[in-house]
């Protein structure tokens, strides 16, 4: 769906992106992970031509974006930024309707679409439609930003640190919301973040950037595996990498059949990390799994996890 081919970007003396090649398959949520200044945002903004690469090319559905009119291109790509950038002189509904209006949809279709999207991002349309952006909290504003990006049903969504400015609880809520929306709508999403936890919570694939180079790319487990280059391990935090790996593993994939009398109960969908924390908290060496069949997870399974 999105393909970077030997893409470079140079600002005067500074080489922001150096020969990056990789692809994001259709329907995949790919997280571009890296520290600030690693070139991840620059790479993202090349997809909708907010930045033109100084070398290489970016393909969208097999077509070089350099050959597509930037306005047409951008109206077909959802775009969400950290600062949200809602238009303060427009109501929530008008903000969400921006792209459909540019595309010339009729009023009835726009109104129906706006209500549907507000409901989808968890904002009651009747209550929020007429509100001004200034009256929204940070989390609500970013929900509107997400609805605005999805308004014309673009197949691709670009998100530049969308949740970084929000407090942790709001951030987790919106991450869960995004996962749900992604599962339901099957968009191809490229999301930039510097937060490893966020990458693990969201990603189907992770691409790690460092000093303009792509240093690792693949499914989260492969990127966080023991064979990961030392530089990537250092960047992700070697001492916490093991925990991050455990976060990427679902406990039920490692569970053994049978009861574990007296063991604490792990909530459905819990990760290996959750299980380990549960055992630490309760001072036990096993956890019981929620579900119909009796299953439990011993500590040895965590230690033996690949």
């Amino acid at each position: 769906m999105i393909r970077f081919e030997d893409v470079s970007q140079r600002y005067g003396e500074v080489q922001a992106v150096r020969g990056v090649t990789f692809g994001v398959p259709s329907g995949v949520l790919c997280v571009l992970l890296g520290e600030s200044g690693s070139g991840k945002s620059t790479l993202l903004r090349m997809v909708n031509r907010l930045i033109e690469p100084s070398g290489g090319r970016v393909l969208l559905q097999g077509q070089d974006v350099a050959g597509i009119d930037p306005q047409i291109l951008r109206r077909g790509i959802g775009y969400v930024i950290q600062s949200v950038g809602l238009f303060p002189h427009r109501s929530v509904a008008e903000n969400v309707a921006t792209v459909p209006r540019l595309l010339g949809w009729d009023a009835a279709r726009i109104a129906a679409r706006v209500d549907k999207l507000l409901a989808m991002v968890g904002l009651e349309p009747g209550e929020y439609r007429a509100r001004r952006p200034a009256t929204l909290s940070g989390g609500q504003a970013q929900r509107v930003g997400l609805a605005r990006a999805l308004a014309a049903d673009p197949p691709v969504l670009l998100m530049d640190e969308p949740f970084s400015a929000l407090d942790p609880a709001t951030r987790r809520g919106l991450q869960a919301e995004l996962r749900r929306i992604h599962a339901n709508m099957g968009k191809t999403i490229l999301l930039v973040t510097h937060d490893v936890e966020e990458a693990l919570a969201l990603a189907d694939r992770i691409a790690v950037m460092e000093a303009g180079r792509l240093v690792a790319e693949g499914p989260p487990l492969a990127v966080l595996g023991w064979e990961t280059p030392a530089s990537v391990r250092r960047m992700l935090g070697a001492e916490t990498l093991a925990f991050h790996r455990l976060s990427a593993l679902r406990a039920e994939d490692f569970a053994l059949p049978g009861f574990a009398p007296g063991a604490p109960l792990l909530a459905a969908g819990g990760t290996m990390r959750d299980a380990l924390l549960l055992m630490l908290t309760h001072g036990t060496d096993r956890a019981a799994l929620a579900g119909e069949a009796a299953r439990h997870l011993p500590l040895s399974a965590i230690l033996a996890a690949p």
Binding site: P70, R74, G85, F87
Partner: peptide, 10 residues
């Protein structure tokens, strides 16, 4: 950020 959003939206 508002002009940036306007640009990004097309």
């Amino acid at each position: 950020q508002i002009t940036e959003a306007a640009r990004g939206l097309g």
